[in-house]
Simulated scan of single mutants.
Amino acid sequence: MTDAHDTQVTVLGLGAMGAAMARTLLAAGHPATVWNRTPHRADDLVAAGARAADTAEHAVTSSPLVIACLFDYDSVYEVLDPVARSLSGRVLVNVTTGSPAQAREMAGWAHDHGITYLDGGMLAVPETIGQPGAAIFYSGAPAAFEQYRPVLDAVADSHYVGDDAGAAALHDLALLAGMYAMFAGFFHGAAMVSTAGVSAKEFAALAGPWLTAMTASLPDLAESIDSGDYTTDVQDLEFTKSAVDLIVRAGRDQHVGAGVLEPVQRIIDAQIADGHGDEVFSRIYEGITHP
Rank of each mutant, 00 (worst) to 15 (best):
A165Y: 01
F145G: 01
M122T: 02
I268A: 00
I129S: 03
V9R: 04
D153F: 09
L87M: 15
R90W: 01
A190E: 12
A177D: 06
T232Y: 04
E202W: 10
C69Q: 00
L92N: 07
A59G: 04
D236K: 05
H159V: 03
S217D: 11
G277E: 09
A103W: 08
D119K: 01
Y160F: 13
R104Y: 14
L26R: 05
I284G: 00
H276K: 05
A207K: 10
A52I: 11
G162D: 02
D112K: 13
L246A: 12
T33P: 00
S282I: 07
A124E: 00
D245R: 08
P31A: 04
T7Q: 15
I67N: 03
G259F: 00
E286V: 00
D236G: 05
L218Y: 11
R37C: 07
R41H: 12
A48R: 11
G89L: 08
D253K: 13
P132H: 11
G98V: 07
L118S: 03
R37M: 10
W210K: 09
D6M: 10
I288V: 09
A16I: 10
D3N: 13
T116H: 01
A200R: 06
A59S: 06
M179Y: 15
S88V: 13
H111C: 13
V11G: 02
L261M: 13
S242Y: 14
A154H: 00
Q235E: 14
S62C: 06
R85E: 15
G120C: 00
G13T: 12
L92E: 04
D163K: 10
L176S: 04
A216I: 06
G208M: 12
Q102K: 07
A205Q: 14
L246T: 15
M17L: 09
A184Q: 12
A53T: 05
S86I: 14
T212N: 15
Q131M: 15
A270T: 12
G89P: 06
G228I: 01
V280M: 08
V155H: 01
A42N: 12
L211I: 15
R104A: 04
Q254V: 08
F183S: 15
A205I: 14
Y285E: 05
Q131F: 05
I247G: 00
I115K: 01
P132E: 10
T240A: 15
A273N: 14
Y117A: 03
M17H: 02
T195D: 06
G114K: 06
G166K: 04
P39G: 05
T212P: 08
I67H: 00
T10R: 01
S194T: 08
A204R: 14
P100D: 08
V161D: 03
T55I: 07
A213I: 10
H159C: 05
R90V: 08
I272V: 14
Y180I: 09
L261V: 02
V193Y: 08
D226C: 00
P263L: 06
A169K: 01
D233I: 07
D245N: 14
P64W: 02
A20S: 06
V256D: 02
